[in-house]
């Protein structure tokens, strides 16, 4: 089996649940207490994609309203990115199009998965109404709290990175 390692960065505003998503994915845990992240914390999870053993080295980067405020070196050598927004806070997704555009400018080949987190906070009907208004054309909704779609999101990015 071929072993490959890939660097994944998690981007998005502070408080959108990036750390919680990683905790759910790597340790299957969730804490509803908000603990801010400063700088970068790195975690690693090995998954199997077909005949490949993929080491996903996940950079949990402190949340900022724009990626331009993040040190350039954090993004160096990234193989994939997950851009996380909070469905409850419009400020976290209002400028997502320009954010993605500017990220693509510096890393044109970087696969990016757009994620709307905290869907557990919405009742079903509200959610479907809200998604219509979200400026995320190919977003995936998820809940780090319930675990809904978290594995799917990392799995999807893994496949895109191996393509």
């Amino acid at each position: 089996m071929e072993a490959v390692s890939k660097k994944v960065i998690l981007l998005g505003h502070f408080g959108v649940g990036k750390t919680s998503m990683i905790k759910r994915f790597v340790y299957h845990k969730f804490s509803k207490e908000y603990m801010t992240t400063i700088g970068v914390k790195i975690d690693k999870k090995v998954i199997k994609i077909g005949d490949t053993e993929l080491s996903m080295i996940i950079w949990d980067i402190a949340g900022e309203s724009t990626h331009t405020r993040i040190p350039q070196s954090y993004k160096l050598g990234s193989h994939g990115a997950i851009y996380v927004v909070d469905v409850m806070r419009p400020s976290t997704y209002e400028n997502i199009d320009s954010e993605i555009k500017s990220l693509k400018k510096i890393m044109p080949a970087l696969p990016i998965v757009k994620v709307a987190n905290k869907t557990d906070l919405l009742v079903e009907n509200e959610a479907s109404e809200l998604y219509k208004d979200l400026p995320l054309d190919q977003y995936i909704h998820c809940s780090a709290k319930t675990g809904e779609h978290v594995e799917k999101i990392f799995g999807l990015l893994a496949k895109q990175m191996l393509e």
């Binding site: 390692s5 700088g39 970068v40 080491s55 080295i57 160096l76 050598g77």
Partner: peptide
């Protein structure tokens, strides 16, 4: 492990900074 590719392109005398890890 995640940045090992960067070392191959780093030139002698050059530096890369990673604050707050």
């Amino acid at each position: 492990e995640s940045i090992k590719e960067l070392f191959t392109t780093l030139k002698t005398g050059e530096r890369i900074d990673f604050p707050c890890i």
